[in-house]
Each structure stands twice: as C-alpha cells, then as structure tokens.
Design a protein around this nucleic acid. Structure first.
Lengths: 345, 345
DNA sequence: CCCCATCATGTTGACGTAAACATCGTCGTT
DNA sequence: AACGACGATGTTTACGTCAACATGATGGGG
C-alpha cells in the first residue's frame, strides 16, 4: 500500500474564497457578509442582494472548520459501530441519518478498529478528536469497557441496543416483549416444545430474546429445550436446521433473527420437511424480504426507524444541555405469515 | 461497569483544555505541545513525557475544528446518497467506510433531501458547507443535473454506478459483462427465449443490464421478448412472477436484482411452478442470503468491496492533487446455484 | 430643532492550532 | 580554543468566522 503522503506539492487547491474576498468584491465589510451568510436581520435589502450576488460570483462557501471553531459546535454527530454489515445496524443508521438531517446535523461514521498507537507520544485515536457534538453507539455495551478507546468526558452519548444501565441514555427495541410474542404465538397454535436458535452469546439482544423465550416457556409450565447458539448468519441457521430437522420431536423453532430463520428453512427444505406443515418457524427483525421467503416468514417486526429517531432526538437534547439519562423502549410487533401453523396431530 | 465519561461533567463544554492549558501545566510552550501532539521529532524524550502526562492529567484532546482550519484539510470524505435502503448502497458504504478508515479519514453521510431554500439570502444547503475534503456520489448521474444542489467547484468527486461520463472519475461494476454472463448461462443451458425483469428506467445500472441482456440475445440470433420493468423491490418481482408464471412460453427469467428474483420465485411457488424444473431464474447482486433462498439463487456477484476501495483510493488521490479522471470497471462473476437448469423437453 | 432610539454597517479581537522563524545551548572538528 | 552544525525549545502570526463593541446616519417626539 502506498503511503499516500501529501508531501509533494499538494496542488494547492485554488484558494477557496473567504468572507473577506466576498466583502471586497461587494464593497462591504466582511461582517456584513457574515450577517448575510447567516440570514441575520438588519441588513439593507439592497446590500444583501449585492452580497449574495458576490457570493455567487466568487463561488463562496462558508468554511465549516472556521465556523465550528468559532461557534464551538460542529453540527455533526458521530455513530460508533463495529460493522455496517447487519440489517439492523444499517436500518438504524439510515433512520439516524434521516433524522439528523432534519435537524440539520450531519452524521459521521466512526468505525471502531485497532487503536492506532502511534508514537508513545501522540496516542490519540480518531474518536478523541472526532469533529462531533455527540455520539450514538450501536453495539454491545460490555464491549464498551474493553474497547481500545475512551469517550471524551462531557461528550453526549446515546447507546442503542445495549445493557448500558443508568450511565447513559439507552434506546432499545423491546426485545423481551418480541421474544414473548413469538413464543406465545407458537404456544397458542398448540406447539409445546419450542426450540430456540439464539444469536451469539456476546450479543445483548440475543441474550434478551433468549431469556424471554425461556421465561415464556417456563411461565407456560413447559421445560425449555436446550438453547442452540448461532451467529446471526444464514449459515449458522442452516447448520442448526440440519440437526433439528432430523429429530421428530421438533415442531416449532423460534430463530433469533430472520437470516437464521432463512437458513433454517433452507435446511428443512433440503431435508424434505414441510414448513409449516411439519415444523413452524418464527424469525425476528422482519427483513424487507421476509415476506417473500418461501414460505413467507412469520416474524417480529422491529421499528428501526423509531429507534433511530429516538436516539437522535435524545442525543440532540443532550447536546442542548439536557442532563438526565432515559431509557426508551421501542415496541415490536408480531407479523404472522405463512411459516407458522398448528402442529400436525 | 464504570462509566467512561463523567456524565456529571459540566454541560458547558467550553471547559475543554487547549494546547495553552497543557503547555502551562507542563511548563513548556504551546508549540512544544503541538509537536508532541503530532508526534514530531526533535522533542526531548523527557519533555515529551512530561507533556504527555499533562495532556492526560487535563484530559486534553485536540480541537479538530482548529486543526482543520489551520491545515485546510478535514480528513473527512462525504458520501452523497438518496438512501441506505438498498443492499448495494449499504455494501458500498461499508466498504467505503472501511477503506477510508484505513487512510485515517472519516466518512460523513450527506443524505440528499429537499433543498432547504432558506432566506433568499443564505441559501446554502448542507453540501456546500460540508466539512469534507471530497465526496463520493452514489446515485444516478443524470439526477446530478437536476438535483437541487451544485457541487462546490474544486471539490474532488468520484461517482459510483453512473453514466457520469468524462466529467468525473467513475467507478462502476461491470454491469454489461454481468448481464452478458447471466444471459449466456441461460442460453448455454439450452433456453432460448429468456425474459428479463429490469430495474426502473431511471436507473443507469438497470438500463445497462437490460441493454446487454438484449444485445446478448440478439447476438445469439434470438428475438428478445419484451422487457418488463420492476422497481428493484420483491413486490415488483412478485407481480411479474405472477404474470410470467402463468404463460407456458416462459422457461427462463433474468431478474435485474436478487430481490426481484426472490419475489419472482415466490410467485412461481404460489403458482405451483417448479424452479428450476419449469422455469430457471437468475438474479443480480448476490445478496448474502441468496444462497439460502429456495432454491438457492443463481446470480451475478458484484464486488462492492472493490468498488468502495477503488472509489476511496481514487478520491484520495484527487484530494492529493491528481487531476485526471479515470473510469474503473470492477468485474462481476457468475455464481451458479440451484435456481437454473436445462429446460424441460 | 434638538436629543436619543433605531438601524445599517464597520472594526477589533479571539477561538485553537501549527508553520515559519528566532533563540540558545551543546558537541564534534580542526 | 574557535567555529559551525544541529537539536531543543520559544515567539509570532495567520487560518476564516462571528460576537461584541463602535460608528455614523436617519427620523420621530417633545
């Protein structure tokens, strides 16, 4: 990989015009340009007009670095995440970006990676110098502690989908209720022994869903079968499907997410087991494609949009001085489609 | 869990220590602090040590606004897009973020939305003042022209998946070859009349794929059946599937993307048509789930990672002064799975 | 018709950083 | 011993913006 140094003459970007340039061009002071630029009152319409014309003529655009320095605000919020690869993270990010834009904030991605321990001297990671007014953290809170970075003190934080406790404002999908709805749906169809293919043990969401599946089973007076752990991927769902599909005491499976449910169903197809005739399957997430799976997947819909919205609203409130931490729970909803049915007699 | 940010810190962030504070605390000049902060040579190890300790003691972190102002660089690149909702955009963004982080750049999302035409005066949109050194545009170039914004002159730009022509550096998947491979695969299996469900007419990618499907058919001496247009969604695939599945002259369908292929297959399932026994289906994209569809989908794999990598590398080269525009074509690959077979006799 | 409120505009300075230049020892060489 | 090179550190200044204050004009009320 080439070092990409800008050592050699960095083709001096033809100096962007500044307020001073515009001011000179329009024959006013730069302060007047500033006033126009910020839409302040008390500027003569004619002057304003003239300034706007000069700005256009010179192709002036405000220097946001100077602005941020002057104002002490970046009008930007950071999103810390490990990967964009999951549907949930992406949907949440999309909602965050949309909501932030509404408030005229931009969103900066701050992927977490190996700390760039430079010299013993300047050991700052990107985060500590990130040009943001606040951050949304989208990952498992327990990783926060072992992470290679420290959050700058005083930086407003909102955590999504985590067990961060009272130290932060937390926005979370109602994992518990979702898992309960999924399990009860299967119970109400007449299934007794409901299997669960959970997400990885490192995931807070996975553990919550698992816990409430178990609790619902126990509440129904049924001994829960042993949990099986996947890693959210279709492959892991497939593997468990191949095993579970060969047992004759399996009539219903609750998968920790839709992708594992998909892998599961594929395995069952390959084994010649009918879904939902022989085995019912429920997922979690409601991927956009879930209704086109074969059979269309019964699943728990997460409202990622609402999660993102809540996260931004709460974060911006903190940026504006709010001190308290909140815990916001976004409800989930059971979507019944074709992958569940009453067990065969 | 110990809180890593003192949430009890003063809401007033103006208390952030500056270089001067650190300098005073360490008994050196602020320039020395600057040198330490940037890992420059020519600093006495003992002095360096002392400065680092002072930085830690005061919780100093560099002010990136001041830094950006001073250096004239933001170390950030912007990504302009309409939505994160599609698999392709999402994958590309992921690759971009990863690659940018490698070069120590951060990524700022710049979702395009209705222009915020403020006062007649300060009608700047977010883009024109965005704190970025360059931008990647992920959408149809023809929309660039009718977009409500103008790209600040002199701002390096790389366009992905578009027909932007010579005005920009363009990174694109080899749509043409992908469509050719898909069509030829079906032809080589013995299919003659291959139907195509294309993406929306507004999409450059969709049109490229369609064009080369047609061209390949013509080259094979076959009159292409009428194109059918979808909108990339599973629903639109489903609709076309319901229609095509009821005709007995349909043995092979090339869908413009995997999601439409999925909808298509669902419709065929509902109609009792066997895939690939009665009808073969090919997609485009190779979604992560595609291999778990039922049947596993034969499709064209796009290398989004490479697209993102190329985009960033070229953009950063431009940021460093490169003037020329390039056209980078990233190859595609046919992935044969279970949704295609020779036509029934 | 004078005074002051009001408005339009200009001037000054500070935000935090880092390049450019200045200063002052120290050490190796002849 | 004298000289200069070099390394460590300090001083000055400018980056672009905008708040605060200053100035100068206008007009209405007493």
């Amino acid at each position: 990989m080439e070092p990409m140094t800008s050592s050699d003459a960095p083709a001096r970007r033809s100096k962007q015009p500044s307020m001073g340039d515009v001011a000179r061009h329009a024959g006013v002071s730069s302060q007047t340009v500033s006033r126009v630029s910020n839409g302040h009152a008390n500027v003569d319409p004619l002057t304003r007009q003239r300034v706007v014309e000069s700005m256009e003529a010179l192709g002036y655009r405000p220097n946001s670095a100077a602005r941020a320095l002057r104002r002490g605000k970046f009008k930007a919020i950071g999103v810390i995440m490990f990967t964009l690869r999951t549907f949930g993270n992406m949907s949440t990010l999309n909602a965050i970006a949309t909501e932030a834009a509404r408030a005229d904030y931009s969103v900066t991605l701050l992927p977490v990676r190996e700390a760039t321990l430079g010299q013993v001297s300047g050991a700052y990671n990107r985060l500590s110098e990130a040009a943001v007014d606040g951050v949304v953290i989208i990952f498992e809170a327990h990783l926060l502690d072992e992470a290679e970075f420290t959050l700058p003190p005083g930086l407003p934080v909102v955590v999504i989908d985590s067990n961060a406790g009272d130290a932060y404002t937390v926005v979370d999908t109602d994992q518990a209720d979702g898992a309960r709805q999924a399990t009860e749906h299967l119970l109400s169809l007449g299934h007794r022994k409901i299997w669960h293919v959970a997400g990885p043990e490192s995931s807070f969401s996975a553990m919550r869903r698992m816990e409430y599946w178990r609790r619902t089973m126990v509440d129904a007076g049924i001994e829960p079968p042993p949990v099986r752990y996947g890693d959210w991927s279709t492959e892991s769902g497939y593997r468990h499907g191949m095993e579970l599909g060969q047992r004759d005491d399996v009539t219903a499976i609750f998968a920790g997410n839709d992708q594992m449910a998909l892998g599961l169903m594929r395995a069952l197809h390959e084994l010649g087991r009918d879904v939902p005739g022989d085995i019912s399957v429920v997922g979690f997430d409601d991927l956009e494609e879930a209704h086109s799976f074969w059979p269309p997947l019964t699943t728990i819909r997460q409202d990622f949009g609402e999660v993102g919205r809540q996260a931004i609203q709460n974060l911006l409130a903190k940026v504006d001085g709010e001190r308290d931490n909140h815990k916001i729970i976004v409800p989930t909803r059971l979507i019944v489609r074709g992958s569940t049915a009453a067990p065969r007699e």
